[in-house]
Amino acid sequence: MDYPLPTEKQGISFSQLQNSALFVFGLGAGVVAVIVFAAAAIWGSQMEFPIDAGRSVGARIDAVVDWTNINGDWLFSAIKIVVIKILITMEDALLWMPWPGLVVLVTLISLRLGGTFVAAFSFLGMMGMGLLGLWESAMETLALVFTAVTLSIGIALPVGVFAARNNRFDAVLRPILDGMQTMPSFVYLVPAIMFFSLGNVPAVMATIVYAVPPAIRLTNLGIRQVSPEIVEAARSFGTTPMQLLTKVQIPMAMPTIMAGINQTTMMALAMVVIASLVGAGGLGEDVNRALGRQEPGAAAIGGMSIVIMAIVIDRLTQGVVKKRQDALRGT
């Protein structure tokens, strides 16, 4: 029921600790710098590191991935089935409607959430994609992105909520998320292929790893930002932690969570071309093929389609965010 107040930590000793740690660190850095410069002066650029551990560490990671691949087979198969199922459902849903239906629908939604300009842009953009013969590719990409985003939300909400309620977990999570976001996205492709072979599934999985951090971060932030006075008032009436979460914290954090989902979607779209390297279809594959065949025109058309898609989705989700914010402000 009672979450530890940040202020109840023993702030005094901590800041002192920080100061002395900083001092020791500075001293150590100075000593190291002197040694390095001395060594460089003596051996010049010929100097080698005493051992070369790159190979053996890499091999160790390989071994871990191999082991996981063999022993986690049942898990990966299960994930694969689920992801394929979602992908197919999404794609069927998108292709079920003849193109004029979808164009009209998206234009109307754009009109409502973004206004005339966004609506016009959506209409022209979608018509353009269709007229350039990219409709099916676009739908496949959309299905891929939506699947990755849906699964990302499924991961980000519970993880973000837990991080908001548990400072220690948050402290551990933060550097991991930083790493996930800065790691070149290519790196995720290798284990993704090993666990899920080629196709749309490893593409979705790699996309999730790359795109999920902002959704987690902003869910965490959004919940932490809910005014402590409101939380306190709600609790004083006998609100259970679950009610607090579903009726106070999540609704109030919604604009921030939506902003996270918006970013996650944009990052998923950025992964589209890279994901095609492991066999994902859609616009990414078109661009990739154009690269192989040295057809700059086709590459440009595919790339433009991705950009248009990103802009439309961005404006629509931001429209939702704004509506939520207005609702929270009570206007």
Binding site: E229, S236, P251
Partner: peptide, 15 residues
């Protein structure tokens, strides 16, 4: 059941 509180800064839910 027993007790209810009124706060200085109201603590109302804006939405």
């Amino acid at each position: 059941r027993k007790v209810a509180m009124v706060f200085q800064h109201f603590g109302l839910l804006p939405h």
